[in-house]
Design a protein around this nucleic acid. Structure first.
Lengths: 301, 301
DNA sequence: TGGGGACATAAGCTGGAGTTATGTGCAGCG
DNA sequence: CGCTGCACATAACTCCAGCTTATGTCCCCA
C-alpha cells in the first residue's frame, strides 16, 4: 500500500532522466540545480531502494546499465504524468489576467486538456493559461460573458450564441469486468439486450447518460439502472468489482482496457459517439494563443 | 525545470486519492498509515503549493471541491504510472527463486509488461515475478536453459526450439515533426518515396530496422539513414528537433502522437507490422502463474 | 446535554537531502 | 613523466519537511 516508500521521489526520477540524457552525474546535477555529491548520493540511494544497479560509473562519466535503461523508460512515464499534472494545476490556479482563458467540460479537462497544455508549453513557453471546468452551459456562459477565450464541450449540439469546430469524437463503449458473462460472448450484443439490462451508470443528467438514453430510445428504452453513482471513477470501480456492465467514454477507460481490468463489449448496429468541439462566441474567431491551442487539438481522440 | 518542486510528493497524491475514496481525512490517514494531523497538514500544504482548495472540510467529513476532483483525476494518472514503475522495478530485482520468471524483448518490457504486472498483482497478489530483458535470441536462450518460464518477443519468426502464440501486433509507423513537410501532405506517401528518403533510424540490427529493410526491399531498398542512433528515445528526440522523419513502433510513440509532438504519416500500400508473441520451450505449455500472465496479455496492442 | 466523530493547532523529534570541503582514479598532454 | 582536468566518492555539518503525541474546537445526534 505505501507505494511512495517503494518508488523513488519525482526529483530522483528527474535526476535519473538527466543522467541518461547527459551522460554524467555532475552534468545531471547541474541541470537539475543541485551539486554533484547530492546527485551521487541520490542515485545511489535510489539504487539501494530498488535493489538494482542503474548506472555504470567511470572516471569518464556515467552510463545507464541495461536495467537502468528500462527503469529510466518507466520513470519517464511517471515524469510525463507529473508534467501533465503540473500543467493542469497551473492552469487551475491561473489568475483572471492569464493570456489564455480556457473553459472546458469535465471530461475534456480531465483527459485531454493536460496533454494539450504540455504541448502548448513546449511550443510557446510562458503562455499563462487559466482553466475553468464545468458543464456545457457553464462553459457557454463563461464564453458569452467574455470571461473565457476558448471553450471545449462534448455533446450533440453547439450551445446557442457560439460557433464551433469539431476537433474529435468520443466513443461511448460498453464495458464489463473480465469475469462477466458478456466478456465471453461470441455473438455481438444487440442494442435491445443492452437496453434491457440494468447497468451501473452516472446519475441522470450527465452527458454520457443523455447520449445513451437517446441512442436506446428506439430499442425499448434504457432499463432502470442497477446503481447510479456520482463520478466516473466510482462507476469504473463498481464495474470492476460488481457483476454489472456499464457504458463509459473510451477516454475514461483507456487505461483499464489495456490493463484488462475492463473489457469492451461490442454492440451490433449501435453508434454511441458524440463530437468533441472547440467553441467560441459567434463571430469572434480565436486568435493569438487561443488559435494556437486550437491548432494543437485537431485529431483528438 | 525543477518539476518536483511544483508537483506534490507521490505520498501526498496517494493521500489525496485516499481522501477522495474514503471521504474523510482521518480515514485516509489511517488507510495510508499516518496519523490524522499528518494527513491534515499534508493536504493543506499541497493546497498551498498548488494554490487551489482541494477539499471541503466539515465536521462530518471531507469532500473534494470541483477543482479537487480534477486534480485528483490527474493525480491518479501519476500514481498509476508509479504503480507500473514499481511493478517493473520489483520484477527487475526479483531473485531467481521467483515463482514466475519472465524473459522479454526490450520493447515489450518497456511498454507492455509493467501494465500486465500491475494487472497480475491485482488478481494474484503475492506472485513473485522476475524479469530478464534482452533481444530475441537472449530470450530464447533463457527459456531453453530453463532459466525462464515464459518469454515475450516481437519479430517475424519464432526462435527454434520454442512454441509460441501471437498475443498482439506492433505496427511500425512513419512519423515526422509537425513542422515537417510530410505532415502537411494531402496525398499519401508512397513506399518508394519512403525508401528513397534518408531517415533517422535505430542502428542496423535492431528489430525495427530489420522489418523496415524487409518491407522496402521491393521498393528500391532503404536509403542510407541520415542518422543512426542507439536508443528509441534518442531517435524520437531527433525527429522532434531535426527535420527528418523516422519509422518507429506505435508503442513507442503513443504519447508523442497524442501530444502532437509527432505526426503519423500514412503510407500507401505498406503494412509494417510485426507480431508480438509469447513463447515457451516446445512442448512445455505454460502452467500456473505463467498461464495466468499469458491470459492477461491477449489482445495487446 | 453529553458523547463521538472530524478537523485544527501546538510542540517537539527525526531523518533525508542538501551544502561545502576534500580525496581518489583515470586520461591526455606538454 | 608529472601536471592538469574531469568525474565520482567520502566526510562532516545544517536544515527543514513530515511525523508523532497531546489537546482544542465544532457540529451532529441520541
Amino acid at each position: 500500500m505505501p507505494l511512495a516508500h517503494r518508488v523513488p521521489d519525482l526529483g530522483a526520477l528527474e535526476l535519473l532522466l538527466a543522467v541518461a540524457r547527459l551522460g554524467s552525474l555532475g552534468r545531471a546535477a547541474r541541470a537539475t540545480g543541485i551539486t554533484q555529491p547530492a546527485a551521487s548520493s541520490r542515485i545511489r540511494s535510489m539504487e539501494r531502494q530498488l535493489g538494482v544497479a542503474l548506472v555504470d560509473r567511470s572516471p569518464r562519466g556515467s552510463e545507464l546499465t541495461d536495467a537502468g535503461v528500462l527503469v529510466t523508460d518507466w520513470a519517464r512515464r511517471v515524469v510525463e504524468a507529473a508534467e501533465a499534472f503540473d500543467a493542469g494545476a497551473q492552469a487551475l490556479r491561473g489568475r483572471r489576467d492569464s493570456r489564455l482563458r480556457v473553459a472546458a467540460s469535465m471530461t475534456i479537462a480531465e483527459y485531454l486538456l493536460p496533454g494539450w497544455l504540455v504541448a502548448l508549453r513546449a511550443q510557446r513557453p510562458g503562455t499563462a493559461v487559466s482553466l475553468f471546468a464545468g458543464n456545457s452551459s457553464a462553459v457557454a456562459a463563461r464564453l458569452l460573458a467574455g470571461e473565457a477565450d476558448l471553450g471545449f464541450v462534448e455533446g450533440l449540439d453547439v450551445p446557442a450564441g457560439l460557433d464551433g469546430a469539431v476537433i474529435g469524437r468520443d466513443r461511448l463503449i460498453v464495458v464489463a469486468a473480465p469475469a462477466h458473462p458478456w466478456s465471453r460472448r461470441r455473438r455481438e450484443l444487440t442494442a435491445a439486450e443492452l437496453a434491457a439490462t440494468p447497468l451501473i451508470l452516472r446519475e441522470r443528467g450527465s452527458g454520457t447518460r443523455q447520449v445513451l438514453d437517446a441512442a436506446l430510445a428506439g430499442h425499448g428504452g434504457l432499463a432502470d439502472p442497477l446503481l447510479e453513482l456520482a463520478s466516473t471513477t466510482a462507476v469504473k470501480a463498481a464495474v470492476v468489482s460488481e457483476a454489472a456492465p456499464s457504458v463509459l467514454s473510451e477516454l475514461a477507460v483507456g487505461e483499464e482496457l489495456t490493463a484488462r481490468r475492463l473489457v469492451e463489449i461490442p454492440v451490433a448496429g449501435l453508434r454511441l459517439v458524440r463530437d468533441l468541439r472547440a467553441v467560441w462566441p459567434t463571430g469572434q474567431r480565436p486568435a493569438g494563443p487561443a488559435r494556437h491551442l486550437l491548432g494543437l487539438t485537431r485529431g483528438a481522440a
